[in-house]
Amino acid sequence: MKNIAVGLVPIALLLLSSCASVSVKGEHREASKPVQKPAKIYVAAFDTTKGAYKIAGTEAKDPESFKHKTAETLANYVTKCVNEHVVPAERAADAHRLPRQGWLITGEFLRVNTGNRELRALVGLGAGGSKMETRVSVIDLAGNGKPFLTFETTGGSNAMPGLLESSGPGSAAMSMTTQSMMGVTDDAARTSRMIAGELNTYMMERGWIAKGKKYSVKKLGEYQLIHEQYFH
């Protein structure tokens, strides 16, 4: 039974990709676009002061610490993903003290809901699901300080059956394992991939990135698999 359960984990991760995702919506591009590809992109921690938060579990004891940790987690994921799929990226410790060249990714959290880990594991199918929504702004540091590209991300993890809805012991083990793993940290990882994908698409349209380096972004309403590697 143990070997069967272990063997089911990769399958669970593949199935999970269709049940937990983040999408891009509301893209807006200013008429005055950057004229050249940036040598480096800087990533600032997103603003946590205006969003709607629903925090459960131990994180609820110190909501400000949770918000700070979530912002740092997202910024680190964005830096890593942009560095891998767009251009070299670097964390911006102070967004007001940057060179007058390159781009800056900044933004704000619109909504963060930690959901309920126990409900996700036991029930699933929407019960206890997490949610993360952000508004992203991309600024050309050589320009006027206003964003030339803005968009929103929305998504979370909540659709896979939990233990009580599973049809057998193997399915139950798979549901318990995968649903308990889901949460805001995973939402941040998915959000970072959508941000990198949006910038990758923007640059590819201008011939700044080779077609073989395409990194897809998921628009709201579309279907996209999330690769298993991101769950390790």
Rank of each mutant, 00 (worst) to 15 (best):
K2S: 09
L8I: 04
V9L: 14
P10D: 05
S17T: 08
S17C: 02
S21M: 06
V24L: 10
K25E: 13
G26E: 08
E27Y: 01
H28D: 14
H28N: 11
V35K: 05
Q36Y: 06
P38M: 02
A39W: 08
A45T: 02
A45C: 08
T49M: 14
A52M: 08
I55S: 10
G57A: 02
A60W: 03
P63E: 14
E64K: 12
F66C: 07
H68T: 15
K69A: 14
K69Q: 11
A71Y: 07
A71G: 10
E72Y: 06
E72C: 01
T73S: 12
K80Q: 12
C81I: 14
N83Y: 03
N83A: 03
N83E: 12
E84G: 02
E84V: 01
A89V: 04
E90Y: 02
A92C: 08
A95N: 13
G102Y: 01
G102N: 10
I105A: 13
G107Y: 02
E108S: 15
E108W: 06
F109D: 02
R111M: 02
N116A: 04
L122D: 01
L122G: 04
G124M: 01
A127D: 00
A127H: 09
G128L: 00
G129Y: 03
S130L: 00
K131E: 05
V136Q: 07
V136W: 03
S137D: 09
V138P: 03
I139P: 05
D140H: 05
A142S: 15
G143E: 11
G143W: 06
F148M: 03
L149H: 01
F151D: 06
T153M: 07
G156F: 11
N158K: 13
A159R: 09
P161T: 12
S167I: 09
S167F: 04
G168P: 08
M174I: 01
M174T: 04
S175Q: 13
M176F: 02
S180P: 08
M182C: 00
V184I: 11
D186H: 04
D187S: 01
A188G: 00
A189R: 10
R190T: 02
S192Q: 02
I195S: 06
A196P: 03
G197S: 14
G197C: 10
L199F: 12
Y202N: 10
M204R: 15
M204T: 15
R206M: 01
R206I: 01
R206Q: 12
G207N: 14
A210C: 11
K213C: 04
S216A: 11
K218N: 12
K219M: 05
K219Y: 07
G221Y: 09
L225T: 07
I226E: 13
Q229R: 06
Q229K: 10
Y230F: 11
F231E: 04
